[in-house]
Amino acid sequence: MTETVPVPMRKLMLLVGATSDIGHATALAYAQGGWDVILAARDAAAASRNAADLTARTGRPVPVLTLDITETTAFTAFVDGLPRLPDTVVSVVGLLGTQARAQSDLDDAALVMRSNFEGPSLLLGLFAERFAARGSGTLVGVSSVAGERGRASNYVYGAAKAGFTAFLSGLRNRLAASGIHVLTVKPGFVRTRMTAGMPLPKLLTAEPAEVGAAIFRGAEVSRRDVIYVRPVWVLVMAIIRAIPERVFKRLKL
């Protein structure tokens, strides 16, 4: 019941996309698991609120770095500028966008694709190189069930997530023998506290804290390859993938 004695070299997790609710829950799971945490976000001021929360809860300092996931040319300098190479990098970056806008506005569609696919893939790919050189490390990418089949309601976002999922899968395949662990996370519906009482299907909807805990467990304890957070999604997506295209194209999902 005393303040924890500082350990000289704690494990370090870098969270990319630190203003999201899932990101914050993930950072909290790591911090409570005894890890040091660095936050990176485009809006560093907003991420500071989360850093203060982590520091208040754990008594540990949490640095905040600015990183725009679409500024890919800045990635190498960003990685070189880190105080030390993290043990784990978690990317929860994502941009849902609006399908109606993305299907008619090329710039908007490009931004959705770059934010969900190009940026996260290039950044995790860069860390993969550094991890391979070191011979250890864990990469976590939060992708989406939307990437498993293109649907009229969100196929621009879904296509970008499909690309990210494939990238992570390839990375895992390439690095499996070298001890680098790659985890793909497909959270499904997630309820935040501020949406309490809103109509999301209860069985399919996870709490952010549940997602954060699942990521920490899947990445650092059970070392899973792909997790859905709520197991029922395995079944739901198996059904959705199995529907023949000639039927699927007429469905409204």
């Binding site: 609120r49 989360n50 203060a52 929360d53 520091t55 208040a56 809860r57 008594g59 935040t192 506290r193 501020m194 309490a196 009482g197």
Partner: peptide, 11 residues
Amino acid sequence: ALGGLDRMIAF
């Protein structure tokens, strides 16, 4: 609904 204001600030 203020449940979203769930961050601690300082201790």
